[in-house]
Simulated assay, not measured.
Amino acid sequence: MIKAVKLVKKYGAAAAVNQVSFEVATGKNMVLLGPSGCGKTTTLRLINRLVTPESGTITINGININDHPAEELRRGIGYVLQHHGLFPHYTVAENAAIVPKLLKWESHKIKSRIEELFSKLNLDQSLINKYPAALSGGQQQRVGLVRALMVNPPVLLMDEPFGALDNLTRLAIRKEFRELDELRNKTIVMVTHDIQEAFEMGDVICLMNKGEVMQLGEPASLLQHPANEFVAQFLKEQRLLLALKFFKLGEQSAWEAMNGMDEVDLKALLRSTIKP
């Protein structure tokens, strides 16, 4: 669905994105992961032409994104921001209706779609005519997703969508997102610096550093077969917790993922962590 080939984006002499290539299959979620300043948000913004690369190409469903007017391209891509991005002087309903109105949807169709998404995202219908300031952080983030999903776009871009939330709210909304049927057929590119979040949400992880791709692959492959020292060190502190989450206890692959750790200490830790 999405293919990027040798993307380069510079700011002055520095390359924020340098020779970045990846493919995202239809219906899959690729997570752009890495430390601050590694180029992941710039890469995301390249996909919907919020910034323009010096070189390289991006195609969506086989069509070069430059073959569309930018406004037309963005109407087919949902975009969820870290701080929800809602217009404070618009009601929830008015925020949600922005793109449908541009597409000349009938009022009753807009109303029906808002109510449908509110139900799916566990939002109370009484919030529809309120302003964003009257909503909690979790509610605002859900409304931001409602707006992104209103016209049922095939592609969804998410830039640190849970970053502004407290930990408990963050965990709850991540669980809702994973279970939401609206997202199951979407092709998603998501930015995060949270390793646990990346491994929980991503079908594929693109780990970046200094504008370059360090490793691209399924979560388990990054744990079992780190491509270089940066990948190994980046995941080192959370390696045990990630292995417990992604491998069944007793499988040889779990121990391979923990390569370099003392097996006696690891087994003792497993016994103290996992209840029978």
Rank of each mutant, 00 (worst) to 15 (best):
L244M: 13
E197L: 02
K186S: 00
A164P: 02
L171I: 13
Q215R: 02
K248D: 13
I188A: 08
N228Q: 03
L222V: 01
L156M: 06
E176K: 05
N259H: 12
E200S: 09
V231K: 00
M214T: 01
R170H: 08
R170V: 10
K210G: 03
Q215E: 07
E212R: 13
L223D: 09
R178T: 11
E179S: 14
L249R: 15
L207G: 02
F247K: 08
K245E: 15
Q215S: 03
H193M: 01
V189H: 04
Q252I: 10
I188F: 08
L216W: 12
M214G: 04
S253D: 11
M208I: 07
E176S: 09
P154M: 08
L183N: 11
E197K: 06
P154E: 03
L240M: 09
R239G: 04
T187I: 06
E251Q: 12
L183G: 11
D203H: 14
V189L: 13
E212W: 03
E197F: 09
K245F: 11
F162L: 15
S221F: 02
D159A: 05
E179T: 12
N152E: 15
L244A: 09
S221L: 03
Q224K: 11
F162C: 00
N185K: 14
L249P: 01
E182S: 11
V191S: 00
E212K: 14
D181A: 12
F230R: 08
L223I: 01
E197T: 03
F234K: 01
K245G: 04
I188N: 10
V264D: 12
L207H: 06
G217D: 02
F246T: 09
M190F: 09
H225E: 10
V264Q: 15
M214C: 13
F162M: 13
E212T: 14
K236P: 00
G217K: 02
A243R: 03
D166Y: 12
Q196N: 12
N152I: 10
T192F: 07
A227C: 01
D194I: 05
G260M: 04
E176D: 12
N209M: 09
L241G: 10
L183Y: 13
G211I: 06
L156N: 11
N185H: 14
L222E: 02
N152Q: 14
A172T: 14
L249I: 14
R174T: 03
R170P: 03
K175I: 04
L222A: 02
G260L: 10
P154R: 09
Q252C: 00
L207W: 07
E229C: 03
N209V: 04
T187W: 04
N259K: 13
A232V: 02
G260D: 06
V191R: 07
D181E: 15
I205A: 08
L171S: 12
D194A: 08
R184M: 13
V231G: 00
Q224L: 12
A243T: 15
N185S: 13
E197W: 07
Q233K: 07
Q233S: 03
N152F: 05
E160C: 09
W255V: 07
L165E: 11
L157I: 01
L168R: 13
L171M: 12
R178V: 06
E197H: 09
N209G: 04
W255L: 10
